[in-house]
């Protein structure tokens, strides 16, 4: 097969791939300058945060949060205090109480002493959320038509909530996506 035929075949394969995405629901038309509803696009709300690496967010029952990429595994519905402390010590960012909205906090909270004989106490007073590397988050998607935040209870929503908190606490921090969230907060006033 000649190189011209090769490139033609490759080109057609790329097109077929795009059609498969279309059949799976990907839009075949994108509109710039106005939404499908005819309303104007607000450029400040269009910024996208790309996570530079996988991120884990640990939230306690007071809404304090720690953001890092440490390993943390639940055992019988609880985390070991040793692991919790390790995660907190190695966190890249930490947030004071009341930073994480109530829907992200653990539903129930109890602690054990060293009942299982493994030399460590454990606690259920934490909830862990994970976000994948390179995940795209568009904070503007969580702003409703009235300019109010409309967050779900998923990890991306938590990231947006903490981003807004970080912008309040330290608008010049190295928090991934800080400039995006600052521009949205400035727009919302």
């Amino acid at each position: 097969m000649s190189s011209t035929e090769d490139s033609k075949t490759k080109f057609r394969d790329q097109r077929r791939q795009l059609l498969r995405l279309g059949a799976a629901g990907m839009p075949m038309v994108l509109t710039l300058g106005a939404g499908a509803s005819g309303g104007p696009l607000i450029s400040q709300l269009q910024c996208v945060i790309t996570l530079p690496g996988s991120i884990r967010i640990l939230v306690d029952d007071d809404g304090a949060a720690w953001v890092g990429n440490g390993n943390l595994k639940k055992k019988k519905g609880k985390y070991k205090s040793k692991d919790i402390n390790n995660f907190k010590d190695n966190a890249d960012f930490s947030f004071p109480s009341s930073s994480a909205p109530s829907q992200f906090r653990p539903g129930s909270c109890s602690g054990d002493g060293d009942g299982d004989g493994d030399g460590d106490s454990s606690s259920s007073c934490y909830e862990l959320y994970s976000l994948d590397a390179y995940q795209l988050i568009t904070p503007g998607d969580y702003v409703d038509v009235n300019g109010s935040w409309n967050l779900g209870s998923d990890a991306a929503s938590l990231y947006v909530a903490l981003s807004a908190r970080q912008a309040d606490l330290s608008p010049n921090s190295s928090w991934p996506g800080i400039s995006c969230i600052v521009s949205i907060l400035n727009y919302l006033g």
């Binding site: 795009l18 059609l19 279309g22 075949m28 509109t31 710039l32 106005a34």
Partner: peptide, 21 residues
């Protein structure tokens, strides 16, 4: 290349089309 920019004069909008559309 394989992307088409279509400016709609009456609506003032720009649309990105792929080869199919």
């Amino acid at each position: 290349e394989d992307v088409y920019f279509v400016f709609c004069k009456s609506a003032g909008t720009t649309h990105l089309l792929n080869f199919l559309t």
